[in-house]
Design a protein around this nucleic acid. Structure first.
Lengths: 349, 349
DNA sequence: TTCTAGCACTCTATTGGGTTGAGTGCTACC
DNA sequence: GGTAGCACTCAACCCAATAGAGTGCTAGAA
């Protein structure tokens, strides 16, 4: 455990805020002038040397200023920084922006991602709710070929899942309608995570053993839900071009790596899954702490949305490590809370 | 109309193929050695000077080689270049790649876009079918709140459209089911473009005037289809990072402009709409010919897919003007034909 | 003991001159 | 009409010199 004196903290904070602002290594003179502690540059230099020894600052080369290390940022974020409170009018603006005609979930989440990116001038990211965390609302079997059935599954929060299944025998739409209403009845309002189990249970029950219709309907539902894509996650990443505005991405090679990472979304999904599972409010991952490669030198501020005990997905902001944390953190926090409200509302109906 | 001698054409072709390969301005010496016509560099220089006067070649500065202008590329593509035929095994590979478990339309198109990007090492783009060009298959009204109804509309090709509508009075699911089957009956197999008309017609008919259920069902369907997003287009752009591998994007500023363009998809949609409306097979747009800004110095090779007289959408490849047209054009052409087959098949069932 | 002033030192970034080499345009000649 | 030769142009590269920001260290003040 690292213990810092009051002055150490002040210097660390001064270096970080200045670095966040300018992106350049910060020298002792600058801090001496800017910071509230009235000490000379030489004194600052001593403190900085100490902080460097602790691994909180780093010097690109001997005759340059200091920049914070991820470790230094972590301490700053966790115990020094004070998040700015959002102004009332800022909150109103966010509400306004997101509430506008909440047509369907997809639209809402996409807009959220876009909003986060624009408002924070970084990339915004939203992880879709997995179907399994929502509740069953409706299933529909539709004939789509002689031996093909299209299955539409809808959750209470308005998510849609579509899949096609092959059926071994010719089947009429009328028959399918009967299946639909039987299954709808059976699964009404169940959490989708326990639907599989419920179906299996029912298949073993007396009814299914003797009622041919029920047996077939159940078999069809089973196949539909067995579909591999059922548990897939999806994410929206918007505003990648904002990142290019940061001088740290003047380097093409770095930019290329980043774009590659964004295109192979599975990595980011895994990363967000961590936040989802932890589900303990806002989470900040700093580049080098990321055991999954690809986001080096980047930073991810994320928060789960949904009810605390039953998070639906994750939303957040991806940017360079040099971000205005004190502003972005409350924005992400508030957005998550607000989206949660909207979705809970839908899911309760 | 520009008329070129055989030799002019050969020189133009040689410059372009070399430029496509290397990305560097091409000098007279190189051409003299590479091309089949056995003439000296000096002669080539004379020809090149002529071609430059015609606006087909351009010299970045006095002591550099020549690069083709868009005008020069156009002539090359339209009348000089010979598209390579795809090898049998290449076609098999494409088929293989795309046919794998064609689960739903979205998945298919997204995979197509990704495939195009990987195979051509550029960005791949696919414009979704608009709902209005497909045929009606199924509509479903689902109660999603006391006075809220979720409407799911499905086309024969498997597209799904979801919307929410407010209803002025409390309504039960049982009632909604009746609406669904009535409307399904009515609209079965109609082209979605004429559905609006059909509904209006029916509303004026005797039946609707006296049958309250029918009247309400029709009103509900009308509202659902009236929804503004009904005619929206959507596109997938994949493989943007491939573009970064091209040395012409070493320039960050240019890259930034390009990413911005990709994020504001409406421009590209408009651009693709041109191909869709023209619907005359493969279409090539070269950067500066693009009256919509944003794709300067880029080039778009696109082709509509779907039946010739009833195109569904557009797919293609976006890359720098320096692309291997003779290879990519047949790939886009073949992919479009193949996707058309798959989708037609689905739409016919 | 803690802080500060001063100074020599280090290292990057920038500037400008010199050189290289690819490629051209022109002219004289085949 | 085609070619060889030659002087010329221009970007790219290398190199050395310089400027400037910032440090570490030491000696002395509080």
């Amino acid at each position: 455990m690292i213990i810092l004196t009051q002055r150490d903290q002040s210097v660390l904070e001064a270096v970080i805020t200045d670095y966040i602002e300018t992106g350049e290594p910060v020298g002792s003179r600058t801090i001496s002038k800017r910071s509230a502690l009235n000490v000379s540059p030489a004194t600052i230099r001593n403190v900085m040397a100490d902080l460097e020894e602790l691994g909180l600052l780093h010097q690109p080369h001997t005759s340059a200023g200091r920049i914070p290390t991820p470790k230094g940022l972590r301490i700053y974020i966790d115990s020094i920084m004070q998040s700015k409170q959002l102004e009332r009018q800022e909150r109103d603006l966010i509400r306004e922006e997101l509430r506008r005609k909440p047509r369907d979930v997809k639209d809402l989440l996409q807009r959220t991602s876009r909003f986060l990116s624009q408002y924070c001038r970084q990339a915004g990211v939203v992880l879709w709710p997995k179907l399994t965390v929502t509740r069953f609302k409706h299933i529909e079997f539709i004939r789509s070929g002689q031996q093909q059935v299209m299955v539409i599954l809808i959750s209470r929060s308005g998510l849609i899942h579509q899949t096609n299944i092959d059926w071994t025998e010719e089947i009429s739409q009328r028959e399918l309608d009967k299946y639909s209403s039987y299954v709808n009845e059976l699964l009404q309002d169940l959490p989708l995570s326990s639907v599989k189990e419920r179906i299996r249970e029912e298949m073993r029950s007396e009814k299914a053993l003797f009622d041919k219709l029920a047996a077939r309907a159940l078999e069809m539902a089973r196949q539909a839900i067995h579909d591999s894509s059922f548990e897939d996650s999806e994410i929206y990443i918007e505003g990648q071009s904002n990142l290019l505005d940061n001088p740290e991405f003047a380097d093409v090679a770095r930019m290329r790596r980043l774009l590659h990472t964004f295109e192979d979304k599975s990595r980011i999904i895994r990363l967000l899954d961590v936040t989802l599972k932890a589900s303990a409010g806002i989470q900040i991952i700093l580049g080098t702490e990321d055991e999954f490669q690809g986001l080096q030198e980047m930073s991810l501020i994320s928060s789960p949305y949904g009810r605390g005990d039953r998070p639906l997905g994750v939303l957040g902001v991806i940017g360079p490590m040099r971000m205005d944390y004190s502003r972005i953190i409350p924005v992400v926090e508030f957005t998550a809370r607000f989206i949660s409200q909207i979705l809970e509302l839908a899911d309760e109906n």
